[in-house]
Lab assay of single mutants.
Amino acid sequence: SSQSQGISSSSTSTMPNSSQSSHSSSGTLSSLETVSTQELYSIPEDQEPEDQEPEEPTPAPWARLWALQDGFANLECVNDNYWFGRDKSCEYCFDEPLLKRTDKYRTYSKKHFRIFREVGPKNSYIAYIEDHSGNGTFVNTELVGKGKRRPLNNNSEIALSLSRNKVFVFFDLTVDDQSVYPKALRDEYIMSKTLGSGACGEVKLAFERKTCKKVAIKIISKRKFAIGSAREADPALNVETEIEILKKLNHPCIIKIKNFFDAEDYYIVLELMEGGELFDKVVGNKRLKEATCKLYFYQMLLAVQYLHENGIIHRDLKPENVLLSSQEEDCLIKITDFGHSKILGETSLMRTLCGTPTYLAPEVLVSVGTAGYNRAVDCWSLGVILFICLSGYPPFSEHRTQVSLKDQITSGKYNFIPEVWAEVSEKALDLVKKLLVVDPKARFTTEEALRHPWLQDEDMKRKFQDLLSEENESTALPQVLAQPSTSRKRPREGEAEGAETTKRPAVCAAVL
């Protein structure tokens, strides 16, 4: 046999249950609850290399294929790409003598399909299967379609040439079993990697079954959420508030809700932002270029202005709740996480202390139980975000031990490091100062900020419009641009040419 590394010779191994799959997660993409704000000051410096380099560890398999027929071997997927077919160049070659004697062998292509993985959001991997055969590759009886790919989820059954000719079961060793999710959700989405997690739940990458488009699904544990919100009269209202707010909003710089499922837990389906959180971008770069800050901040102002015009105060604006559309420097941003939002009543007064301390406005800290506050709290938070983006460190921090965090904020005395700000323009610093004003009545509004000289930049605004146009074009394009080929190089076993392929839609398939 010419099988590559990772293939075992026996096809009769006992199949494990899916609970053996491991679970991976990374930083929070968007969480309903406010958790302790991640610290920006503690960015690790590059460490000196050791005298002796450690040995390379043996790579762990990321997936496993269990053979369902004699003549096929099990495969431990270690590499990122595997070709399957009769050709000797394939990493998994159909060359077992037992297999060659079967009637089905002649229906398999020289290069029938490939399984591979690509880097997705949060640097996690996504597994795909890609059909290159004349007679078809099927996943859970659905045709992939020649020249098309679809994501592979845990426990997928792979069939060759005929939908009933099941050859492998695919085990993704990095994700959960699909069966743990409600059927209504599974009918519409293929669940994938964990993108982030918080005290009350997690955010998962998923794929729409009909279109193969990526989405983010925010899962909120009702049990954990009820415990964490025990002081509230009705904890469920917080989730329902977020859903109702998101459904009503329609702005290019605000995250869109696509679906909602109320089962044992809450499942909020949101558009996916491939670039992750602004927080991670700031930490990764230490600070952002001023031109990049301007492009992002302009969009934040437009989003918050839209919220305020619609009578909504976000109340928890922070870099973790600003998501980026891509890994590119120039990209769209979207505001997310409306769990603490407040729809303005007639009095415009709110007395609930919520939000993240580092970003809270002075009037929030001094008015607990005594007075109210209004939309100006969001403008203060925007000032803190702009400060961080321009400088790479927070204006107020618990680690300045000589003054408490509350006193720093209520006095408006931010930590100004001259040598850092020497590289920032006077106009940018002036806008920061106009937003970090203790008196909410004297603080800049979103309208005033948008009129500030720093943002009178036609090149930046043109760039934003171009990015918007690109997004609109990409969302308007159909996901499947061509029909699967019906040509046949070899006959199917026991049926006429093209008899099955043309009847089945290529579900969740995307043209390369």
Rank of each mutant, 00 (worst) to 15 (best):
326 S>I: 06
313 I>R: 06
315 R>I: 06
498 G>D: 12
321 N>P: 00
449 A>Q: 09
341 S>W: 01
446 T>V: 10
315 R>K: 00
510 A>V: 06
250 N>H: 14
377 V>N: 00
357 P>E: 01
350 M>P: 05
303 A>R: 02
417 I>G: 12
264 E>R: 05
248 K>R: 13
410 T>N: 03
325 S>K: 10
368 V>I: 13
427 K>R: 07
392 G>E: 03
379 C>R: 06
262 D>H: 13
429 L>G: 10
496 A>P: 10
316 D>W: 00
378 D>N: 01
340 H>V: 01
483 Q>H: 02
311 G>T: 11
471 E>I: 13
503 K>P: 10
359 Y>D: 01
256 K>P: 06
295 L>W: 12
273 M>V: 05
350 M>Y: 01
509 A>H: 07
266 Y>T: 05
280 D>A: 14
355 G>T: 07
343 I>C: 03
288 L>A: 12
476 A>R: 10
360 L>Y: 12
330 D>K: 03
323 L>E: 02
323 L>Q: 02
304 V>Y: 01
363 E>F: 01
497 E>Q: 15
350 M>S: 10
369 G>P: 14
379 C>V: 08
405 L>I: 15
354 C>D: 02
358 T>I: 09
251 H>D: 06
315 R>T: 04
499 A>E: 13
386 L>I: 03
405 L>T: 01
274 E>M: 11
483 Q>W: 07
317 L>Y: 01
316 D>C: 00
278 L>G: 01
329 E>S: 09
470 E>F: 11
340 H>G: 01
315 R>F: 00
391 S>I: 01
290 E>K: 11
249 L>K: 15
348 S>A: 15
359 Y>E: 03
469 S>G: 12
437 V>A: 12
420 V>L: 07
425 S>A: 15
480 V>N: 13
349 L>P: 15
449 A>S: 06
278 L>P: 03
450 L>D: 03
480 V>Q: 03
383 G>N: 01
281 K>C: 09
350 M>Q: 05
309 E>M: 00
271 E>G: 08
484 P>A: 07
358 T>V: 11
377 V>A: 14
411 S>R: 08
296 Y>P: 00
263 A>G: 13
369 G>R: 07
358 T>Y: 14
249 L>P: 05
271 E>S: 14
352 T>Q: 00
254 I>W: 09
456 Q>L: 15
494 G>Y: 00
311 G>W: 10
281 K>P: 06
446 T>I: 06
429 L>R: 08
506 A>G: 10
334 K>R: 07
353 L>S: 06
415 N>L: 04
373 Y>M: 03
278 L>A: 01
319 P>F: 03
368 V>H: 13
361 A>H: 06
476 A>M: 04
282 V>K: 04
495 E>W: 03
502 T>G: 15
352 T>Y: 01
373 Y>L: 01
368 V>S: 09
478 P>Q: 02
330 D>R: 12
500 E>V: 07
449 A>W: 03
453 P>Q: 08
424 V>K: 09
416 F>H: 13
258 K>P: 02
325 S>Y: 14
324 L>Q: 05
331 C>W: 07
288 L>V: 06
281 K>Y: 13
509 A>T: 13
462 R>I: 03
294 K>N: 09
361 A>Y: 04
408 Q>I: 08
322 V>K: 08
251 H>V: 02
280 D>I: 13
333 I>Y: 01
488 R>M: 10
409 I>R: 01
448 E>D: 08
426 E>S: 04
406 K>I: 07
277 E>T: 00
293 C>Y: 10
510 A>K: 03
368 V>K: 03
458 E>V: 14
439 D>G: 02
404 S>E: 00
478 P>Y: 15
474 S>Y: 11
361 A>F: 02
478 P>H: 06
284 G>T: 13
393 Y>D: 03
347 T>A: 10
249 L>T: 02
434 K>N: 05
373 Y>W: 15
422 A>R: 14
463 K>L: 08
491 P>G: 02
414 Y>F: 01
509 A>P: 06
491 P>R: 01
375 R>L: 12
368 V>W: 14
264 E>D: 11
245 I>V: 15
270 L>W: 01
369 G>K: 13
306 Y>K: 06
510 A>R: 04
379 C>M: 10
